[in-house]
């Protein structure tokens, strides 16, 4: 392919859109973070670094950052492990397996609002689905999962695994299908058992897939909003007040536009740093196995 200018024409519409609706807003958000403004008045007053100072001193902001970290640390690895296990389960030549694959995907295409309302119901004490089943087994069925300070976060994580199962399964499945059978045959010749060839062949070959799932899941987890908005509003006692929801409240409920912008920018910085670290670590792994 020779270098030319025509390529710019092809990417122009998408690039224009990207600049207008992603890059410019981000820069504008940085600009706003230096002002005090409540959206209703027309003038905004310059506030220097005061919004950042406020953000760094605000315990509720750090509580939210911590909650998001906790959510990501729980939901991402658990979701990935479950996704991989299910992918292995459905990577078998069984009659009707496509039906199951399709079935497992349904939660992922469902409406986030509908699912959140549904899961409020599932988590209800006594009458909720989980507690009803516990009641049938004569186990304590009075737990109010979403109102319990130590359980609410786990309730959200559990739901996220349920919702995200389908896509992760399909991703890992495609990774599994892509592994050349010759590798397994070679491992077998070397006398490796099932578990060993899983460890030595399957996992290393899945690293590119894992990388993709890890980065997208982490970004997704750090930005979780709808379930919190519908199910817990950050409660009980701010135990599920994740940073996406916290910033939403600052901006759209308290109308502290400057402070919300400063906090968004801090969040963005954190996401970028995490992505770079993940990228570095996995890239090294990737290169290590690139010979296979």
């Amino acid at each position: 392919m020779k270098k030319g200018r025509l390529g710019y024409l092809f990417i122009a519409p998408a690039t224009f859109h990207l600049v207008v609706f992603a890059i410019f807003p981000m820069l504008f958000s940085v600009y706003l973070s230096f002002f005090k403004w409540n959206l209703l008045t027309s003038e905004r007053s310059f506030n220097g670094l005061a919004n950042y100072a406020y953000a760094f001193r605000d315990p509720q902001f750090w509580n939210a950052m911590w909650n998001s970290t906790k959510y990501a640390l729980l939901s991402v690895p658990l979701g990935m492990i479950v996704g991989l296990l299910v992918a292995i389960l459905v990577n078998q030549k069984l009659r009707g397996i496509t039906l199951f694959r399709t079935l497992f995907y349904i939660p992922a295409i469902s409406s986030g609002v509908a699912l959140s309302i549904l899961w409020i119901y599932i988590y209800m004490p006594e009458t909720g689905l989980i507690n009803s089943v516990l009641g049938l087994l004569h186990i304590n069925n009075k737990t109010d999962f979403l109102k319990n300070e130590s359980l609410a976060m786990f309730a959200l994580v559990f739901m996220s695994i349920w919702v995200g199962l389908g896509p992760r399964m399909v991703l890992f499945l495609s990774g599994l299908i892509g592994i050349p059978p010759s590798l397994y045959e070679a491992a077998e010749l070397d006398g490796a058992g099932k578990l060993r060839s899983f460890w030595n062949v399957t996992l290393p070959m899945l690293i590119p897939t894992t990388f993709f799932v890890l980065i997208t899941s982490t970004i997704g987890a750090l930005q979780i909003f709808t379930p919190v908005y519908i199910m817990t509003q950050g409660g009980p006692n701010e135990k599920t007040d994740v940073v996406g929801y916290h910033i939403y409240v600052e901006a759209w409920s308290k109308f502290l536009i400057g402070i919300a912008s400063a906090k968004s920018f801090v969040l963005l910085a954190v996401i970028v740093i995490i992505s770079i670290i993940q990228f570095r670590v996995l890239k090294n792994q990737l290169e290590g196995y690139s010979t296979t």
């Binding site: 609706f21 410019f24 912008s261």
Partner: peptide, 21 residues
């Protein structure tokens, strides 16, 4: 690369300025 990177600043980060725009 910038296109890929922009996947990171969606959601709460740009919602407010996009709204203002």
């Amino acid at each position: 690369f910038i296109f890929l990177g922009s996947l990171m600043f969606s959601g709460p980060v740009t919602q407010l300025p996009v709204y203002l725009l």
